[in-house]
Amino acid sequence: MKAGKEGKSRDPSALKLPGYDAAKPHLEAAALSQSLDPALVIAVAAAESAFNEKAISRKGALGLMQVMPATAERYGVAARSSSGGEHAVMEPKVNAQVGSRYLADLLRMFDGDKELALAAYNAGEGAVIKYGRQIPPYPETQQYVAKVMRIYRTLVR
């Protein structure tokens, strides 16, 4: 292990989170399939679920990348898996694919601006458009964008 600087203790350590090793191949493959930087997709998953593939938010977002069921359905993912149990988007590979595809679409919608795409991932593209293609003035969204970008920057160093 490398010795870190004392002031770095507050930096996110996405690579040390439980679940990272299992999630990484799915996130990287999904990112590459959408021509995205894998570090950005990994940063989103770290911020969204801390790599917990079973995560379910209070608003109903599911899995590694906290995909809303309506978003999964927009991309053709059935509400239930073939076994009839949990939503199909809870499968880590499917979740990474849907989340990456949505992120890629948002990046195209906002001309490659990572911060606006992340704000839209969190608050919805309508909110970003409503506020003049700016990060909406929602504390949760502003903190989310800052957190993902902080994790992203640590991964691309």
Rank of each mutant, 00 (worst) to 15 (best):
V94T: 15
M68F: 08
P136F: 06
A96H: 08
Q134N: 09
A117Q: 05
A96D: 03
P136H: 11
L116C: 10
L106C: 08
A47I: 07
I56L: 08
P92Q: 10
S13Y: 03
A45K: 06
G132V: 05
A120I: 00
K59M: 02
S13W: 05
G76L: 10
G7R: 15
M149F: 02
S100Y: 02
G60L: 14
V41Q: 02
Q97Y: 09
E73M: 13
Q134V: 09
R133M: 04
A117I: 05
P69G: 13
Q97L: 14
V98P: 15
G99L: 10
Q134Y: 01
P139L: 12
L103Y: 04
G4W: 15
S100N: 06
A70I: 08
A43D: 02
A79T: 15
A117R: 00
K59A: 03
A23P: 14
G112R: 13
P137F: 02
P136Y: 10
G124D: 07
P139T: 14
A72Y: 14
V98M: 10
V98F: 10
P69A: 09
E115R: 09
A46M: 07
S83M: 02
K130N: 09
S35T: 13
L103R: 01
A14M: 13
R150K: 15
V67L: 07
E73Y: 05
M1S: 09
H87W: 12
K54D: 11
Y138A: 04
L64Q: 06
A117D: 01
T71C: 12
M149A: 03
S100L: 05
R101I: 10
V67A: 11
K59Y: 00
I129A: 00
P25Y: 05
P136G: 11
H26C: 06
Y138T: 02
A96C: 09
D37F: 13
V128I: 07
Y102F: 06
D105T: 03
E73I: 12
Y144R: 00
Q97R: 15
E86L: 15
N122E: 02
G85R: 07
P18C: 02
K59N: 01
P38N: 03
D11P: 04
Y20N: 03
A146D: 13
S83P: 00
L32T: 03
A30Y: 02
T154D: 06
